[in-house]
């Protein structure tokens, strides 16, 4: 069920700052090129990619997907709470998002550690070159997202955002949009790299 606020006509700009959305579109384009490069390179090395894919742990990939989804859900709930001028509730949701993001970093970090311990690196083969560079590029975005979420949580706790505040929700919505972008990219990355063959 929508709130009355959602009866507004469909002629509004996206939530947050326009500059952030331009940045998001540029990031999506970069990841898109990466995904296409992976898919078409795989087309020339199907046996290698299918064999190497079997060495990945799909369970940790799925766990990371659930952690990012959980983080996005928490962020969306935080924005919803602050919209209703409930900053303390929004702060708690942002802490939840931070916990999910930290969980992702721990799980992904353990995957990297296991791979490096096994002597796997960028020059191991074409599949691992793509796997490590593509997932690490995304990993860096998660780390940046965690910094953004930490700042948002601190400012939300301080009551910076809210419908009656001078800042409105612009900063919170901008950071939230970035975090959702990181989630969206993983939604494509997980089946492409971990499952599809």
């Amino acid at each position: 069920m929508d709130t009355p606020a959602h009866t507004s006509p469909h002629n509004t700009a996206p939530p947050g700052d326009l500059a952030v959305w331009i940045f998001i579109l540029a990031e999506l384009l970069a990841f898109g090129v990466f995904f296409a490069a992976y898919a078409f390179t795989r087309a020339r090395h199907v046996a290698l990619f299918d064999a190497m894919q079997q060495t990945l742990d799909r369970h940790t990939g799925a766990l990371n997907t659930l952690l990012l989804i959980g983080g996005s859900w928490c962020v969306a709930r935080a924005v919803e709470a602050v919209e209703r001028d409930r900053s303390p509730t929004g702060f708690r949701w942002l802490l939840g998002a931070l916990a999910c993001g930290a969980g992702f970093v721990l799980v992904k970090g353990s995957e990297y550690l296991a791979a490096f311990s096994a002597g796997i690196n960028l020059s191991t083969n074409t599949f691992y070159m793509f796997y490590l560079s593509l997932t690490f590029f995304h990993f860096m975005h998660v780390l940046l997202g965690l910094v953004v979420l930490a700042i948002l949580a601190w400012q939300t706790r301080a009551g910076v955002y809210g419908p009656t505040r001078s800042h409105g929700l612009n900063g919170l919505e901008s950071g939230a949009a970035y975090w959702h972008m990181v989630d969206l990219v993983w939604i494509v990355l997980f089946p492409l790299v971990y499952v599809m063959h």
Partner: peptide
């Protein structure tokens, strides 16, 4: 974009 502060779904 202050006009966008009521876009979050319920």
């Amino acid at each position: 974009m202050s006009a966008n502060t009521k876009l979050t779904p319920a």
